[in-house]
Nucleic acid binder design. Sequence first.
DNA 1: CCCGTCATTGGAAGCGCTCTCAATTCCTGC
DNA 2: GCAGGAATTGAGAGCGCTTCCAATGACGGG
Lengths: 351, 351
Amino acid sequence: MRGGKPTIDDVAALSGVARATVSRVLNGGPNVREEVRQRVLKAVDKLQYKVNMQARFLAGGKTQVLGLVYASDLDSEPNSFYHSGLELGALRGCAEAGFQLLMHTVNQHSLGKTAKIIELVDSRRCDGLILTPPFSDDCDLLRELEARNCPVVCISPGLAAQKVASGVGIDDEVAGYEMTRYMLSLGHKKFGFIKGLEGHLSAEERYSGFRRAIAEAGIGEADVTVMRGNFTFRSGVDLTAAILGNGHRPSALICANDDMAVGALFSAHKVGLNIPQDLSIVGFDDTPVSEIIWPPLTTVNQPLKTIGYRAVEMIVERIKAGKTASGPLPVRFDVVPHKVVMRESASPPQG
Amino acid sequence: MRGGKPTIDDVAALSGVARATVSRVLNGGPNVREEVRQRVLKAVDKLQYKVNMQARFLAGGKTQVLGLVYASDLDSEPNSFYHSGLELGALRGCAEAGFQLLMHTVNQHSLGKTAKIIELVDSRRCDGLILTPPFSDDCDLLRELEARNCPVVCISPGLAAQKVASGVGIDDEVAGYEMTRYMLSLGHKKFGFIKGLEGHLSAEERYSGFRRAIAEAGIGEADVTVMRGNFTFRSGVDLTAAILGNGHRPSALICANDDMAVGALFSAHKVGLNIPQDLSIVGFDDTPVSEIIWPPLTTVNQPLKTIGYRAVEMIVERIKAGKTASGPLPVRFDVVPHKVVMRESASPPQG
DNA sequence: CCCGTCATTGGAAGCGCTCTCAATTCCTGC
DNA sequence: GCAGGAATTGAGAGCGCTTCCAATGACGGG
């Protein structure tokens, strides 16, 4: 033991068996006499022996670590609510599966963004990766990872990425469609839509759903105003101001996420509009603010924790498969249920 | 190379040197002829060789991984803004220091909460730990960790913990004091204070600062109402309702965090109060909502990202010291600057 | 009572890298 | 041209654990 922490050999020595036997006991292997097992366990306890994962994994060629990658740069702060939700769910999943979660952020505008992620797996730091938007839409990255045989699960990937790697998420197109249908059902006929950052395909899907519903309802191009924001409160404020200043004012404004919707609310308040009487405003995500703000925001709830949890389940599944079976698991996309949450920021249009 | 990934031996073979030499080149060791270095580098490049961290760390006895621990249970959702801020800062620090960040949540009410954290270091999963409240106040845990010689840095520890382990944070007592002084300067004479969860000593410090300012101002016990919340919006709502229903209404309400302040705002609005004319409400933390809410919340900003970043710096420092020097580094507490952010939820009392 | 089986157990070869220490080579200065 | 010392380089011993394979022992059938 040489003063340091006890090793498996110390346990073996103390219990009078071979190292291999201790290993068997530790890993619940078969073919160990009960009496021997007890003897080993007693030694483990007496020595306060703890497996050195570092060594176990070197020998076993794994790490029991999953990487969760998300984007962060100085201009667009990551949405903390969104990421915390996913993280919490993932953490729960990891705890159950006996994995650890390694966080990794990369500036999506940096040149070596892909390299940094790839290195994580090349240097054997983790057994699998969970990618969040917009990385979950980076097909090149996905393919590189696949070439390295690295299990990957994407959070809310767009259609293209869904063909390349497995993913989890809500059906954004349907969510956008349903939300729009709801607004339509309230009697709205003139719409505004604030899109999110380009490249976030899942947010773009919400827009597709919106278009589908609009088209079905026979609403003409002249009655819809579309703008592109960047998911921030600020952009919601600015774009809404632009939309409202524009004369041909919509009666319903749909935003691709809550932050922008809250910005819209802010802007509308500022010009003296009553919400929802004068303008219905709705968002996406159901972040905590949407409940706190006045009026409470009608929005779409997506079960972030469930998504994070499911992502871990899926990836663990793939990791196991990778080591058991021969052929790689087929790519799949798991849809988790979303829900339109009706609060008070949307109502039938006045007059 | 046997089909798998190239190893250091493959590089050694290809470049015609010994394994040790390749290692030296890889680690920037001295005493390698330039010509040899180039040869090795070329082989590395040609083979697309990547160090297997797993192996490097087993040999070196380190992991280059830092653990960030935070509490989470089902009843009290962790404050995503708070944790994301710290995490982001820590992540940035890790990236610069060449470390990875392992996240770990533990239910603070579970029995084995300490064991789970200890195991993280016992099983050699990380080289150091960053503890957030309330774990940063768990002196028993801190001592156990110290016994294991595990570098630890606490985020916003209370006075007791500051003596046991190093930490970073703002000076909460002074922050509470300053905020109260500010309210006093506005002319308030009757106060309400909503405390946070018991055991979160740093939040308790804010209260101490409040008491100090109140005492200095010669305000009597009869003019302050104190309640204990649990940091949630809900508790802010409920406790404020209680305070307002109580007759002897304060003109200023100070909450130990923003969520509760927002709840207070909500409750006050509900009973028809004008904020800040009828009641000034202030919080702590400067979360994003505080800017979005109406009226914008006067609060105390603490630089979370800086704190997270600094925590990593400190821990890396300790890790290096642990391996170089003999004596352990002295315990220290780094104070980062906070700032009272004056917005519109506080004003001189009416009448 | 002997031999094939099967449950147990031990031995030893790695996993891929770091690091100590000895061997070798290269320069100096005289 | 050669000794002494510094600069390089190579060999090999781990780091602590998993796992393949051979060895041992017990048992039941012939």
